[in-house]
Design a protein around this nucleic acid. Structure first.
Length: 195
DNA sequence: TGCCCGATTAACT
DNA sequence: GTTAATCGGGCAA
């Protein structure tokens, strides 16, 4: 049986935590699914929000690991991150996609779409489906409404370049569940050959 | 103070 | 392939 993941899990480097998160189950208020895609960010990384130092928005990133950093993207969507490493590293893992398993009806209602593939395949979509908003910024990941369960079985993780950024695009810090149809975009190893 | 841009998505052409 | 929706931060003036 999967166990609930504790706060200590997050006090390692983002490069270690991010691939380990693939295959775990994320629930918010009892709704969610299997984590299939994440990205790692660190304050030494020009693409990270914490790169230019603390601000009111990214303050949680500079705090202790094991907490949620939620921010608004493009003024419209919410994005969910898990703060990692010892306090002050300002490192976090962006949750980019889930394979929905629990609460499908609620997710469809919140998202306004029926297709399972479109419920949680993308950072903004997953937050809408799980009802993650700025209200959860700074909340502990080992307390309600969050629930993160360890892998039920071994998984194959694939790494590739991150998505939607313009800086440090060469860093292969995106991790995904190999072959999952719920990835927001295919990873290099799973991409189909172009015609 | 004002202007530009971004870890996005969906609805266009 | 392009564009609008629209918020917070960085940077120039």
């Amino acid at each position: 049986m999967p166990n609930r993941i504790g706060r200590a899990f997050f006090s390692r480097s983002v490069q270690a935590v991010a691939p380990d998160l693939v295959g775990t189950t994320l629930l918010v208020g009892g709704v969610g699914g299997l984590v299939v895609e994440v990205e790692a960010y660190h304050h030494t990384d020009p693409a990270a929000h914490s790169f230019h130092g603390p601000t009111p928005r990214n303050a949680v990133m500079f705090g202790p690991p094991g907490y949620a950093y939620v921010y608004r993207s493009y003024g419209i969507h919410w994005c969910l991150n898990f703060v990692c490493e010892p306090e002050g590293s300002a490192a976090a893992v962006l949750i980019r996609a889930l394979a929905p398993t629990v609460g499908l009806t609620r997710m469809r209602r919140r998202r306004g779409v029926a297709a399972e593939r479109l419920l949680c395949s993308g950072p903004g979509r997953l937050c809408e489906a799980l009802r993650v908003t700025g209200a959860l910024d700074g909340c502990a990941l080992d307390e309600p409404p969050f629930e993160i369960l360890s892998r039920a079985q071994a998984v194959e993780v694939v790494a590739g370049p991150r998505i939607g950024i313009t800086k440090a695009i060469d860093k292969p810090w995106r991790y995904g569940l190999k072959g999952s149809p719920f990835l927001s975009k295919p990873l290099p190893q799973t991409r189909r050959r172009r015609a």
